[in-house]
Design a protein around this nucleic acid. Structure first.
Length: 855
RNA sequence: GCCUCUCUGGCGGAAUUGGUAGACGCGACGGAUUCAAAAUCCGUUUCUGGCAACAGAGUGCCGGUUCGAGUCCGGCGAGAGGCACCA
């Protein structure tokens, strides 16, 4: 009777042994000799205190890559740390009176203990938390470097205010008009804030993201859309009426449709345009209008439904080409933050302008005529005057009613219009970006203090490097609303580093996305630039797609900024050469009759029904969605590990679904994975504990093994872990089938299997390796060599099609010529009834693939 | 509205240069073992017809290219994600 493999006994033992041997410590370049480096990184976790299945999947994937690279001879860096600043710690402080630091470090300890149970090949020697003063002190130094270089500035700006977290949010952190963390409707407030000039890098960030071939197309597109480059014309309209003070030259507008200039019927300013503000002084009607716009603007979610609103200033400008006068309106749909905050409107070819023109009875002048084909398809109903139009026409066509632009297609017309405006010295072709500067000030305690002081004499003064880090005070109160740093009785008072007079500290802290924007460089080395240059960029980064435009954009900016202030030797500026975004772990949801969510552990399947265990009441099975506390559809990794072992948990989250897609956690699936563990062990359990001799022959088992190793290798390289796992199953089935083969061949198969398993089930792999007398740890044993000759078959089975339908099969030698194959095929007995003596018109022979007979 | 992606058995999914559709796993069914059950092992499992050999249909829908299409092209539909008054 075969013995049973006990993960609970084996797993802790191996983890201790790996730790004692410092198996996963990254080597220095010198120690590594000529070995190539591989920096494998998963997005570091926020220390919430509990590991969830999503973490398990994320880190299991990274570990596959790290362990595989190690087996392939790379010098691997696979570190781990903690993204430790953030609101939850402050919330805990408010709710339970525990200090955020204490709460955070306790969570880190608890989570680390859970992490260690997974058997990941992590180099813990490089561990840090972003709330370590060491770390954020260095971040403050970088901030000051950026400031020196002019990459940081302060301005009063309308910002997104989260009324629940009581802090400002960056544009990237506002999702559907709501705070990304709190879910509260975001308001607009005017505040003085620190900004990073991420827009300085807009062009480079856009251009380079397209070149990141080992990034998912989806993420590249999302970043490109976010940066939002658009080419157009910036020009000014000169006054046809009195010139307002400071605007003697006219009104600057931006447009991407200079081809429709002849269709202009008015110019519109943003309610927040400086000219609007100037005009509003002493104009109560306009003040009321601005207030009304601002009201709607308070909730971004409302903007979508907001009606078009306008205010006629009474001012007139002159059309640059026709000399006509156009009225200047203030329109609520014009945004101050994009372009110049002013537009010219062509209602016939822009829906917003169209809606506005209809509401305020402004002219609609069509200037783009669709081709006959487009017109026939109803894209354009009537030509002539726009009064007949039901909507703006934004499709392709030919310019009309436009003097020198007539008959040109839209593209050439744009070029011609820009050229003419440039000749007239009224403007020039420009490029605009949707991306805006990154507002980094947060009115929170648990973050990196911004290292500047305000002096009445000297103004804004950077904290000298010698005085860094500017540490957070420990004695803070969370009883008052708002920023605890601002409430602190003494902390903010200091002396000015320049004049020695009284000064106050900046009480805002940095957006926590700063912390995660360079942590990978810190992992590479605490302070040695050469070591950082050696490891960076990260070769394989793994994390959730939710960071597609947040973290992943900020980090790309940070590495560029660090490079440009001489802090990082990374010519490309790209921190992550390869990126993989993994799917979520989902689970069925359960609701009792009274609508309460039930935990998976509280229900069980009885026949076709799902019932509550305690009461036996039927339970409604709901959607399969991401595991979340609110729906209680969570499975605790600790419990799974206690039941099945870490290997089973890792195996299951990698099996079945492709890594980029969501995977549904099911009890049955986990049991299947656990079954596999025992079946693998059974193979090893009956083998000798020393190598019985050299394997021999080109047998089915040997072929299966050598093919499997090649297939698993390829699948891992291609990030198709589910396919790799399927190969393991197929291989194991072949091993069972090959039970009658010689012991030497069976030993070879098992030995190869043990060496392929560590990326997926490292503990089982070690146990199996030890069982058959393997030398050292299999975790640092090379990936098995394969004999290429064993991966090709001598004979192949070819399907034979008649008119594309499969009718027969023949076995032919691998080396058979086309003619030989054709002869054998034509003689196949199963085939005759389908040919019925007809002469084939054509016979297609693809050696090694297929034969198709056309009759 | 714009952009991107997805659509294959009861389920997750294979088939990655156009070449045997359904690998592998889950579930289900049948059998062995057992006093019985669990566990384990062995088999069957795309659908329709047929005792069977076999035949027909089949990768969201319609059409095209090709000796041959899940794969390529055109159109349509459904779902997911991202962006969204960005001129």
């Amino acid at each position: 009777m075969a013995s049973k493999y006990d993960p609970q006994e084996a797993e802790p033992k191996w983890r201790q042994a790996w730790a004692d041997a410092e198996l996963f410590r990254a080597k220095t370049p010198l120690e590594a000799g000529g070995a190539p480096k591989a920096y494998v990184l998963e997005m570091f976790p926020y220390p919430s205190g509990r590991l969830h299945m999503g973490h398990v999947r994320n880190y299991a994937m990274g570990d596959v890559v790290a362990r595989h690279k190690k087996a392939k001879g790379y010098n691997v860096l696979h570190p781990m740390g903690w993204d430790a600043f953030g609101m939850p710690a402050e919330n805990a402080a408010m709710e339970r009176g525990v200090h955020p630091g204490e709460w955070t470090y306790q969570n880190i300890a608890a989570m680390k203990a859970q992490f260690e149970k997974l058997g990941l090949s992590l180099d813990w020697s490089r561990e840090f938390a972003t709330c370590d003063p060491d770390y954020y002190g260095e971040q403050q130094r970088l901030f000051l470097k950026f400031m020196e270089k002019g990459l940081v500035y302060q301005k009063k700006a309308k910002v997104n205010w989260d009324p629940v977290d009581n802090t400002v949010l960056a544009n990237e952190q506002v999702v559907d008009g709501k705070g990304w963390r709190s879910g509260a409707a975001v308001e607009q407030r005017e505040l003085v804030q620190w900004f990073f000039r991420i827009t300085d890098y807009a062009e480079d960030l856009l251009e380079e993201v397209q070149k990141l071939e080992r990034w998912p197309e989806k993420v590249r597109t999302m970043q490109a859309n976010w940066i939002g480059r658009s080419e157009g014309l910036q020009m000014r309209f000169e006054w046809a009426s009195d010139e307002p003070d400071g605007y003697e030259d006219g009104v600057e507008i931006f447009t991407t449709r200079p081809d429709t200039l002849f269709g202009a019927s008015f110019v519109a300013l943003s309610p927040d345009h400086p000219l609007t503000i100037e005009l509003a002084e002493g104009n109560s009607e306009l003040q009321a209008f601005r207030a009304k716009c601002a009201q709607i603007g308070t909730s971004e979610a409302d903007i979508e439904k907001a009606p078009k609103m306008g205010f006629d200033t009474g001012l007139k400008v002159q059309h640059s080409f026709t000399g006509q006068t156009l009225p200047v309106w203030i329109a609520n749909f014009v945004l101050m933050g994009y372009g110049t905050g002013a537009i010219f409107a062509c209602p016939a070819h822009d829906q917003r302008d169209f809606d506005f023109a209809r509401k305020y009875d402004l002219p609609i002048l069509p200037v783009v005529k669709p081709s006959d084909k487009d017109a026939a398809e109803g894209l354009w109903v009537r030509s002539g005057l726009g009064d007949d139009m039901d909507a703006a026409y934004t499709g392709p066509g030919v310019i009309m009613n436009s003097d020198f632009l007539d008959t040109l297609e839209i593209g050439p017309a744009k070029t011609a219009a820009i050229a003419r405006i440039e000749e007239l010295a009224l403007g020039e072709g420009t490029t605009n970006y949707r991306l805006r500067d990154w507002g980094v000030s947060r009115q929170r305690y648990w973050g990196c203090p911004i290292p500047v002081v305000y002096c009445e004499e000297c103004g804004i003064v950077p904290v000298p490097e010698a005085d860094l880090p500017v540490k957070l005070p420990d004695d803070v109160s969370f009883q008052l609303p708002g920023n605890p740093l601002a409430h602190h009785p003494t902390w903010k008072h200091c002396t000015c580093p320049e004049c020695g007079g009284p000064a106050t500290r900046e009480t805002d802290t940095l957006d926590t996305f700063n912390d995660s924007s360079w942590y990978f460089a810190r992992f590479a080395s605490v302070d040695d630039p050469a070591e950082r240059a050696y490891w960076l960029p990260v070769d394989q980064y793994v994390g959730g797609v939710e960071h597609a435009v947040l973290h992943l954009l900020y980090a790309r900016f940070f590495t560029r900024a660090m490079r440009d202030v001489g802090e990082l030797d990374l010519p490309s500026g790209e921190p992550f050469a390869g990126l993989f975004t993994q799917g979520m772990v989902t689970h069925e949801t359960y609701q009792s009759k009274d609508g309460k969510w039930l935990e998976p552990a509280a229900v069980e399947r009885r026949g076709d029904e799902v019932v509550e265990i305690t009461t036996g009441d039927p339970v409604e099975v709901g959607d399969i969605v991401k595991m979340s506390k609110s729906k209680k559809n969570v499975v605790d990794p600790d419990e799974i590990i206690a039941t099945f072992g870490a290997d089973t948990a890792r195996w299951f989250v990698l099996s079945d679904s492709p890594p980029e897609r969501d995977i549904e956690w099911t009890q049955a699936g986990a049991e299947g994975a656990a079954r596999f563990v025992q079946r693998v062990w059974a193979v090893f359990d009956e083998l000798p504990n020393t190598k019985p001799g050299a394997p021999e022959g080109k047998t089915d088992l040997r072929q299966a093994s050598h093919k499997a190793v090649a297939a698993i290798d390829k699948a891992i390289e291609e990030f198709r872990f589910n396919a790799a796992i399927a190969e393991f199953y197929t291989w194991l089935n072949a091993i069972k089938k090959g039970a009658g083969e010689s012991e030497t061949n069976r030993y070879e198969a098992a030995s190869m299997l043990a060496r392929c398993l560590p990326p997926f089930m490292p503990h089982l792999a070690e146990t199996c390796w030890a069982r058959i007398g393997g030398v050292g740890f299999v975790s640092e044993t090379a990936w098995p060599e394969i004999d290429a000759a064993l991966t090709v078959d001598d004979t192949v089975t070819l399907p034979i099609q008649v008119n594309g339908k499969r009718r027969a099969e023949i076995a032919v030698s691998k080396t058979a010529s086309k003619d030989e194959i054709e002869q054998i095929a034509m003689a196949a007995p199963d085939l005759q009834s389908h040919i019925e003596g007809k002469m084939p018109k054509k016979i297609i022979v693809v050696p090694g693939r297929i034969v198709n007979i056309v009759v």
